[in-house]
Design a protein around this nucleic acid. Structure first.
Lengths: 233, 233
DNA sequence: GTCTATAGGCGGATAGAC
DNA sequence: GTCTATCCGCCTATAGAC
């Protein structure tokens, strides 16, 4: 009996995965706004109503895709940080940034789903906030390691920002000085700005050497949060 | 006869504007991917086929909205640059950045249309590239003014980037040294990264003091392209 | 869990009369 | 330029049989 339940569960997991895979394909062709349960079902040789046993609504499927994408890019960032544990923090920062960019280039539509324009009418449930923070936490960890090694040059901090920076430090970056936290969230946004511009076509007919440009900018961002000696590996 | 033609032309211009206004409203509610000629017509009390006299297809309407948005944000940037002509270049840079951000906050859906994820299936015609470059040209102009005043500190330039930077300088930034051009395109992307993160919800539950954060980052970006003494006005 | 059938919508685009 | 009518497609979601 437990094997039967096991088999059922396995089947359920496989079908769920197949639905998400097909949905990801359609994301690429039609975009998140037009993601359609019916089309997914059609392509899978199922009938649309059958999908409702797996995802109670279109938005639930979308949420699953969003969580998967945040988890995937978060895992890539974490792996890059682990792989480079021996390097100085600035080098690790650049390595993480490059890993994130490469994931984005390889999965442009999933990237757009999580870092592009919000899907109209879709409201993200709180399930997404944990996965969404993984990349940020990796960057915070790198900066924290520089703090622990007593090798962080504090960037300047505008007075108007201090209170908010102290709150952020307390909320999710304990052990990192507020000067660095403020610089870090700005650098975080700027990193993704570079990726989005490349991916969303703003660099078309303008910038050709995108990888070097990104690498140089990522290195400068590392310095802007206080990390010294930005290695390029 | 010329008055009749004048009246007709005026009517045509007014209807065209009404269509675009209604389309912009719908952009806010449904997003660009679902922009629908039928819904626009319905709301305007017209019949869908009538719209085809003004815009031969859905994509042409979309193009018009995109061009308008690029022109609007470009005009805002140009005005900010003009208003601050007396200031040192770093202060003008920050002023332009803030003006662009404020336009974006006031017109989030039009911003998403031009700087968010690409609309699936839509291919931008070449009409959009002129308007799309206006903000960038304003920034280039500011840097050029620093060159002319002999007050630009050249940022470092990675070897791999030099050839591309020289091409860019020749293509659209004559008189600006390649070091500054490379830094400038990176800064341009990073500026919009800050705006997009704020607008697309990545700062939710994270950053509260967004204007000061943006202002500080914009000032640092000005320095990163070589502009000195970043005033905050 | 999957099926059929159904309700109650939506869309782009065109032809041809006025 | 605007209308009606039309073609042909699409969608979410549910009910109820098997």
């Amino acid at each position: 009996m437990s094997t039967i339940r096991g088999a059922r569960e396995r089947a359920r997991i496989e079908v769920t995965a197949a639905i998400k895979d097909e949905a990801r394909k359609q994301l690429a062709e039609e975009g998140a706004a037009k993601l359609s349960l019916r089309a997914v079902a059609r392509e899978l040789g199922m009938v649309s109503s059958a999908l409702y046993r797996y995802f109670p609504s279109r938005d639930d499927l979308l949420t699953a895709l969003i969580v998967d994408a945040f988890d995937a890019i978060g895992a890539v960032a974490e792996q890059a940080a682990e792989r480079t544990e021996a390097l100085p923090p600035a080098g690790r920062w650049v390595a993480v940034a490059c890993a994130v960019r490469e994931w984005a280039l390889a999965h442009p539509h999933e990237y757009a789903l999580i870092y592009g324009s919000p899907v109209p009418g879709y409201i993200a449930p709180t399930d997404t906030v944990g996965p969404a923070s993984r990349v940020g936490l990796v960057l915070i960890d790198i900066v924290r390691s520089a703090v622990l090694a007593d090798d962080l040059a504090l960037p300047p901090l505008a007075d108007e920002l201090r209170a908010d920076a102290e709150r952020m430090a307390a909320d999710f970056a304990e052990g990192v000085p507020p000067e660095a936290v403020a610089a870090l969230v700005a650098a975080w946004a700027q990193l993704f700005g570079l990726i989005s511009f490349e991916l969303f076509g703003q660099f078309n007919r303008v910038v050709e050497a995108r990888e070097p440009l990104f690498r140089q900018a990522a290195g400068e961002l590392a310095r802007s949060v206080g990390l010294r000696d930005s290695g390029t590996a």
